[in-house]
Design a protein around this nucleic acid. Structure first.
Lengths: 218, 218
DNA sequence: TAGATTGTTAATCGATTAACAATC
DNA sequence: TAGATTGTTAATCGATTAACAATC
């Protein structure tokens, strides 16, 4: 298990969710062909992916032990090391992220929120305190946080980003659909909801054009 | 401009956001080396991407006309054809998506929401009506919608998905971190917020290990 | 003209898939 | 044993990068 290929890493959550579901139905073993079929993947690809991840591997005729597989996947996905992040912009989307339960599963945690709105500063959202935006400089180093989430309006995003960088943030998860200029050593991941949906729609359109659609549903 | 490579398609929004920013600062032309530098990409890659997208191409010594480039990018991203989607689950996250302004930019539109909570059925969120979940079967075909967004709790996701499929939905954008079983002809895109954050964190960690971090910030 | 920048052809790289021997 | 399933080596595919001639 050296470094896992990026593409493999991206598929891991799908395996995890599928296999977790099996576990809940009381199933103990699963073969890669079975996984491949259900997830619409090539079965060699699944075997390679699992080989890269699983500690003890599978057994011919038996397949993989589901418990072990889940452990291995959790390990690879960083389940067992907690990573803290702060969020700036406690608007509709920011609030949704603060409330979102799923992060814990992957060892991630949003520990605090920042905003400029006097009305919500000092309140708690889903157990996380909202601080004034100015206190970033002070709090980030103290909390030793290195990941910042930007859910402010487009026009404020660059300014917030600059502040985060000054506060010692090394990775930025940006939900504002604008280009952020950052020093070379800062990691930026742009999350663009609209694009995700647009890409899905484009895929669908291509599929429809290629005629791969059931009778008359277009 | 035949079919645009998938990887290129994924980079398009980044070009778009960056170039849009330049336009707002009144700049008229941009060269691919300049884009490459700012976006940390290979300059040949940028040239190839733009070649695949731009209608009229660039001019040696001048670079690309920003207006034309934006038009071409908008065209490729489907800006100019509207695509409708319905959303099921008007909770925190669902509400954030309904409120999100960015979709219009890419020609996407959420036209209605569905929920089981009597308290919010009949209300409007950001101008979109919330209907009872049961009316899916009736409304989807009538609205000719083919994209469904799932923002319900994990435990309901599969049930909702089945309903959507029965209602004629062909593509599903799933925010619940569970595996959805669907007929072969249905497109599923899993959006897992937690994984995105976890992957970012993993990248950061790798970068930190490889020593690519400024003095003492670890 | 000289130099920057374009578009394209060829080389490289990484990921996917096919083929197959090993094993429970 | 026979057959399913594993892990791995080799072939293919697609995307990235390097090299270069064309052009404003």
């Amino acid at each position: 298990m050296d470094t896992i290929p990026k593409q493999t890493l991206m598929r891991l959550p799908n395996y995890y969710n599928f296999i977790k579901g099996l576990q809940n139905s009381g199933i103990r073993n699963i073969s890669s062909p079975a996984i491949a079929k259900e997830l619409n993947l090539n079965e060699v690809q699944v075997r390679k992916d699992l080989a890269a991840v699983s500690q003890i591997g599978g057994k011919p005729k038996m397949g993989f032990d589901i418990g072990e597989l889940l452990n291995s996947l959790e390990h690879c996905l960083g389940y067992d090391n907690v990573n803290d992040a702060v969020l700036v912009g406690a608007g509709q989307l920011g609030r949704a992220l603060l409330t979102y339960k799923g992060f814990e599963t992957y060892g991630m945690r949003i520990i605090a929120a920042f905003d400029t709105d006097e009305g919500i500063i000092g309140t708690e959202i889903s157990g996380k305190r909202v601080f004034p935006a100015d206190s970033l400089f002070d709090l980030c180093p103290r909390l030793k946080v290195h990941i910042g989430i930007i859910t402010v309006q487009d026009s404020c995003a660059q300014g917030v980003c600059d502040k985060l960088v000054k506060s010692g943030i090394l990775a930025v998860w940006n939900f504002a659909p604008v280009h952020l200029t950052v020093p070379d050593h800062i990691l930026v991941r742009n999350e663009n909801m609209a694009v995700s949906l647009a890409v899905l729609s484009k895929h669908l359109k291509e599929k429809m054009i290629s005629g791969d659609v059931p009778e008359g549903e277009v």
